[in-house]
């Protein structure tokens, strides 16, 4: 099981390396969204607005990135994959790979965000919890959206259906990470934000367990 997951993970990486344009597309999406915000915002932002804009951009980036997870391949290759490997390994590998992607994407987004919209609101932030909330937020979005992406792909409907299905489900995660990062921006340390990290972790575990339990049914025909 574990070696299978690792093999599938390696396959994902290999596939993604072959489509480097997709990565470029994701980054370009984030950068252009932030540039639009830079143009739209003329005054200096308050902390909460700064925080909110960042998370909204990251949320949409996550939808973009995770939609690819199951929609990039045709039915034939999927069928081949599921005869070769256990579906549970597939979903774990995909969720893992999605998490790694989102981890990188969210940290890169943070860099670009600081570049375009300034770092003034981070004046008295506690850096550790803030960066942790950004990283965990990305990972959390990936965990929740992997199964949704699979459902939307299976329904034969593109990113539109994924957005409809995903938004209400991703809301708990979004709320938790937004609160955590807001608290971190306001300067509270690990003890103040601890509850939210615990909640995010619990949500991750529950969503991954559910994905692991439910995914095999998605592919039974």
């Amino acid at each position: 099981m574990r070696s299978e997951v690792l093999q599938l993970l390696r396959l994902e990486v290999a596939l993604d390396l072959r489509q480097r344009a997709a990565w470029g597309g994701m980054l370009l999406y984030v950068v252009s969204a932030m540039y639009v915000c830079h143009l739209a915002v003329s005054d200096s932002l308050s902390r909460s607005t700064w925080n909110a804009i960042f998370w909204i951009i990251l949320l949409f980036a996550a939808f973009n990135a995770l939609a690819r997870s199951f929609q990039r391949e045709d039915q034939g290759r999927q069928l081949y994959l599921y005869t070769m490997a256990h579906p549970r390994s597939v979903v774990l590998a995909r969720a893992l790979y999605g998490s790694i992607t989102m981890l990188a994407l969210s940290l890169l987004s943070l860099l670009f965000y600081l570049l375009f919209l300034g770092s003034d609101p981070m004046g008295d932030a506690s850096m550790g919890p803030f960066v942790a909330s950004v990283a965990l937020g990305g990972v959390g979005f990936a965990a929740v959206l992997t199964l949704i992406s699979a459902i939307a792909a299976r329904a034969g409907n593109g990113i539109g259906l994924m957005a409809i299905l995903g938004f209400p489900i991703v809301l708990p995660m979004l709320l938790a990470v937004m609160r955590a990062s807001q608290l971190a921006l306001d300067g509270s340390g690990w003890s103040g934000t601890g509850y939210y990290f615990l909640a995010i972790g619990a949500l991750d575990v529950v969503t991954l367990t559910l994905a692991w339990l439910l995914f095999p049914y998605l592919w039974r025909d």
């Binding site: 949704i148 459902i151 559910l210 439910l214 049914y217 998605l218």
Partner: peptide, 8 residues
């Protein structure tokens, strides 16, 4: 599909 989404 509906059942999976509903449970999740």
């Amino acid at each position: 599909l509906a059942a999976i989404y509903n449970i999740f």
